[in-house]
Design a protein around this nucleic acid. Structure first.
Length: 824
RNA sequence: GCCGGGGUGGCGGAACGGUAGACGCGGCGGACUUAAAAUCCGCUACCUUCACAGGUGUGUGGGUUCGAAUCCCACCCCCGGCACCA
């Protein structure tokens, strides 16, 4: 692409960009001071993974956020708007495997490159605060936090059937599975039983459902978190199996529909349920074993695609429903999940669609116990899920099911057969990863002492540089003798070091806090400074992190609060999700489609300001939208006109006659523009803010060519215009500010204030309607009286032709807007 | 299936229940130029009309209202998320 720019610029953007970027750096214009007395504003954009190149999506996330942060600065806030790199993670390790380059080298090279690209955007990032989380100065605090969590019982090791990605060769957290596929590489996941480290996020499930501490988050994200946590209120009730003579005398199940307990006609256990073996009769054992084996071999995708067809196997044993003494057969089926509730389901086919399908397939009885209103006793075509009147339910017959729920729960609790309880969909956060490029978990396993946490003063556990990179299903650290063999800190004997590393979402769970004191050495952050800045006032980023990073970080904060390390409940008070930028063909950008836009090319030819402004102009930020080459040309043309119009010498106006009306109109436009731009910036409405700046600069052009305003008005207009332009186009505004003879720097000035009186209209267009249809427009003074407005409206010749032969039923008057004449 | 967001000119998109289409792109016409590009000026929803003007228009169908892109009901389509959670 030789000339994508069809606009001939009258200024040299490369020169101006470089000039001011260097000057800002040299002068420390954007250096953030912790002790500034102004009110603070912490504006944070999700930090990028250093994948190699800054793409247009990064620009789309960062440029508008930078504009907003600049606006807050110009409102007088002491703004911190930091940037860093999410530097641990799998791609670095894959690069090591594929190209034989060390993850550290690869990552640091990428950071070097991306930092340069980030600087080219002209952002207010204070690079003194940059953080890179793959360096020991950062990750040692991951280890420190881990020890604190371990001490509090919030980190634990357990054997569990966990999610495994065969391609990444590591386990994943449940949150990192999308539609049965690995969030990173899209491979269908499987399950494995492994000893892994978990964080007890479920302890905080109820607190995480309380969004009261948040100031402004998108409803969509709250809903996603609510659904993910999945709180269900119900009853845990046991079924009697004492007649089988096992160690266990009952099977416990969880139900939200205890009112349907008399409709139980079978029971289903998850294939992984610990009682399966004991409950299987000898003649059924081979069939059961085959089913269990098949269920565990299935990938998540296969399990999902089997959605329509319920399958299962009868174990040969029965359980007794204590409420009516009935024996019901016990099955295993893969629609029962070991991770939810107790891993056992009471089968009520009449009132649960899944149980209904299962019962139909295996010829099990379907007994109605909640009667729909007007039910005549026929067979059900599908499960009846609504409320109704209880039938076939012994002493509870006749109760409305909503009351039956409470009555049966009371009865069950009274009999000691169960208790009211709450179940959650969310599971504990699995943080172990069988990979190299992450934070080592500070634990050793000693033959004598067992699992032993390392003492704090021995941190960091350094990631050894010389490791063997092979995708083997085990961390490369396993093969590293020097790393694995350790001395037990308790007994001094031989011990084996934990070789799994931490999920990288650990890094991002507290990075916002590290930004406040990134070089602090005596803790993860300096408490005094943390208090100055946290919590984050405005967080921006993609919505894809709704139930991963955003949930983990909220959990982390609450855990830290309970340890007394922070004194706030929520890390991010306001959240705004930008949309996705699409290719010129309106499709998602991808290399295979060949529609990827490289920002560097545009920055090189038209300057950072054109790219920044175009990204903000193309549409509402939260909706994203398609890139358009001719669209960015239009913005470049506009900046070109701005360049021209702001460089006129105002004293040339002194020889020309001044038109007072034009002066008033221009000034009114200025103040209306300030008001519009200010309010739009406040609410992330960058596109309409820029449109209003375009309108105003178009007026300035017109006014200049007519030359009928005084030089003082002109100076006032251009000065305030440049101040408004500054957050959008920081380089151009700074250059024009200097050329206009103003003192450095435009970026240390306040955003202009508007004057309501000067912004007020003198004359308005009064719309005249007849029966709601536009018939005439009249120019009238803004303060026109209602009677006068109506008189003028009726006197209009155009209006007369529609009403002369009709009866006027009434007239509606909207001050400052319209008169609507209703005729019969 | 459930939960969000959204359907407005040729395109991206504007519009406190009150002038639909701001701003920009594209297109057309003109100026400048030997010429082209760039730049500047004008026009540009659709239909009828030489024009004046009129009619029709915000996914579809109803409703509320003096007045609906905007509020209510039903439906269609697109995008995103969740999908056996007992």
């Amino acid at each position: 692409m030789t000339t994508m720019r069809q606009v001939e610029l009258r200024y040299n953007p490369q020169e101006i960009d470089r000039k001011w970027q260097e000057r800002w750096e040299r002068d420390g214009t954007y250096r953030v001071r912790d002790d500034d007395p102004s009110p603070k504003w912490y504006e944070l954009t999700m930090y990028p993974y250093p994948s190699g190149d800054l793409h247009i999506g990064h620009w789309y996330a960062m440029a508008p956020a930078d504009c907003h942060a600049r606006f807050r600065r110009m409102q007088g806030y002491n703004v911190i708007h930091p940037m860093g790199f999410d530097a641990f993670g799998l791609p670095a390790e894959n690069a090591a495997i594929q190209r034989g380059i060390h993850p550290y080298t690869w990552t640091m090279g990428n950071i070097e490159n991306m930092r340069g690209q980030l600087r080219s955007m002209g952002t207010v990032y204070d690079w003194e605060r940059e953080i890179i989380c793959c360096v020991p100065e950062y990750y040692r605090w991951n280890q420190w936090f881990f020890l604190k969590l371990y001490e509090k019982g919030l980190a634990y090791r357990a054997n569990a059937p966990v999610v495994w990605c065969p391609s990444c060769q590591t386990v994943l957290a449940n949150e990192q599975v999308l539609n049965g596929r690995c969030e990173r590489c899209d491979t269908s996941i499987t399950r494995r039983d492994l000893e892994q480290w978990f964080l007890r996020i479920t302890d905080y499930a109820d607190q995480l459902l309380d969004f009261g501490g948040l100031v402004d988050w998108p409803e969509k994200i709250l809903t996603m978190q609510r659904n993910w946590i999945g709180r269900s209120v119900g009853v845990e009730i046991s079924f009697d199996i004492s007649q089988l003579g096992l160690d266990e005398s009952e099977i416990s199940t969880f139900t939200t529909r205890i009112d349907t307990i008399f409709g139980v006609t079978f029971m289903v256990l998850a294939p992984e349920h610990p009682l399966v073996e004991k409950l299987t009769t000898p003649e059924r054992s081979s069939e059961v074993a085959a089913y269990v084996e098949q269920a565990r071999r299935q990938t998540e995708i296969e399990r999902l695609s089997a959605e329509k067809e319920k399958t299962g196997v009868f174990l040969g044993s029965y359980a007794i429903n204590r409420l009516n003494g009935e024996q019901v057969p016990i099955f295993i089926a893969d629609y029962a999940l070991m991770g939810y509730g107790t891993g056992a389901v009471m089968g009520v086919p009449a009132h649960d669609q899944r149980d209904f399908e299962f019962a139909r397939k295996y010829g099990l009885p379907i007994r109605l116990v909640i009667a729909p209103s007007g039910w005549a006793g026929g067979d059900l075509e599908e499960a009846y899920l609504e409320e109704g009147s209880m039938v076939n339910s012994g002493q509870f017959d006749g109760l409305p099911s909503s009351q039956g729920k409470e009555a049966i729960a009371d009865f069950v609790e009274g009999q000691g057969w169960g208790r009211r309880s709450v179940s959650y969909r969310i599971r504990d956060w699995l943080i172990s990863r069988q990979r190299y490029w992450g934070t080592p978990i500070p634990i050793v396993y000693c033959e004598k002492c067992g699992t032993v946490p390392l003492p704090e003063d021995s941190l960091p556990v350094l990631l050894p540089e010389d490791a063997e990179f092979k995708p083997s299903g085990e961390s490369p650290l396993v093969l590293h003798q020097g790393f694995v063999s350790a001395a037990c800190p308790r007994c001094g004997g031989a011990a084996r070091r934990e070789t799994d590393t931490m999920d990288t979402f650990v890094d991002s769970s507290w990075y916002m806090e590290r930004f406040t004191s990134p070089k602090y050495d005596d803790g993860p952050f300096e408490p005094k400074v943390l208090k100055e800045w946290m919590p984050v006032d405005q967080y921006t980023g993609g919505a894809e992190h709704a139930v991963m990073h955003l949930l983990y970080a909220r959990f982390w904060t609450k855990a830290l609060r309970d340890m007394g390390l922070v004194d706030f409940d929520e890390p991010f008070l306001r959240l705004y999700n930008q949309g996705i930028i699409l290719g010129e063909d309106h499709e998602k950008m991808s290399k295979s489609r060949g529609n990827v836009v490289n920002p560097d090319e545009y920055v090189g030819s038209m300057g950072a300001d054109s790219v920044r402004c175009y990204l903000m102009f193309l549409g509402p930020w939260d909706q994203g939208g398609p890139w358009s080459t001719s669209g960015i040309n239009g913005v470049a043309r506009w900046l070109n006109r701005v360049w021209e119009v702001c460089q006129h010498d105002p004293s040339e106006l002194d020889d020309r006659p001044t038109d007072e009306q034009t002066v008033r109109d221009t000034r009114r436009d200025l103040h209306q523009t300030i008001k519009k731009c200010y309010n739009d910036l406040d609410r992330f409405k960058f596109n309409t803010a820029i449109a209003s700046l375009m309108e105003f600069s178009n007026r300035l052009n017109r006014v200049w060519s007519e030359g009928n305003v005084d030089s003082a008005t002109w100076r006032d207009c251009t000065e305030k215009f440049l101040l408004m332009l500054a957050p959008f186009a920081p380089h151009l505004a700074e250059e024009l500010w200097e050329r206009a003879g103003h003192p450095y720097s435009v970026h240390n000035r306040m955003f202009p204030q508007w004057d309501e009186e000067l912004a007020a209209e003198e004359v308005i267009t009064l719309v005249v309607q007849v029966n709601g249809r536009l018939r005439d427009k009249l120019q009238v003074p803004v303060d026109i009286a209602e009677e006068e407005a109506k008189r003028l409206a009726l006197a209009s010749a155009k209006v007369q032709t529609y009403i002369s032969d009709k009866q006027i039923a009434r007239t509606h008057y909207v001050p400052g807007r319209l008169v609507n004449v209703v005729v019969g």
